[in-house]
């Protein structure tokens, strides 16, 4: 159990989980990214002063917004797929189609968000 895994790091990196595993990992990365962002953002807003303003200025930077929008949108859209499949188990055989649909929805919304953020960041 736990850290006594019976696979080497190289074997783990070659794991062919494909689409479902990618969404699983990205869901965790998105969740962790949001948790770290929200925690630091709340603390920075609460403390205020130069330090707080400096940290919040980073968050308002367009490059960071592209990252955090990825975390939020992917976690939200993938979470919706997980919730739907869990609450309606008869749909589970179609999970790969659901993942394809999820990517289409995510890329559409995220692409538009990134376009808007970059255009605004460049003064458009």
């Amino acid at each position: 159990m736990g850290l006594n895994r019976n696979v080497s790091l190289m074997t783990a990196l070659r794991y062919k989980g494909q689409g479902p595993f990618l969404t699983y990992i990205l869901h965790r990365i998105g969740g962790l990214g949001m948790a770290i962002f929200i925690t630091v953002h709340l603390l920075a807003s609460f403390v205020g002063g130069k330090g707080g303003h400096f940290i919040n200025a980073i968050y308002e930077n367009w490059a960071f917004q592209i990252f955090i929008f990825f975390c939020v949108l992917f976690h939200a859209i993938n979470g919706l797929r997980i919730t739907i499949l869990d609450l309606f188990p008869k749909l589970i055989p179609y999970h790969r189609q659901a993942i394809t649909l999820e990517w289409l929805v995510f890329l559409s919304i995220y692409g538009f968000a990134v376009f808007t953020i970059i255009r605004t960041g460049l003064g458009g």
């Binding site: 736990g2 850290l3 006594n4 965790r28 969740g31 962790l32």
Partner: peptide
């Protein structure tokens, strides 16, 4: 809602790496 959901998620992830 978000704090409850998020902190529970962090505990789930931590449990995958902390065995004792």
């Amino acid at each position: 809602i978000a704090v409850g959901h998020g902190v529970h998620g962090l505990v789930v992830i931590a449990d995958d790496y902390i065995a004792t």
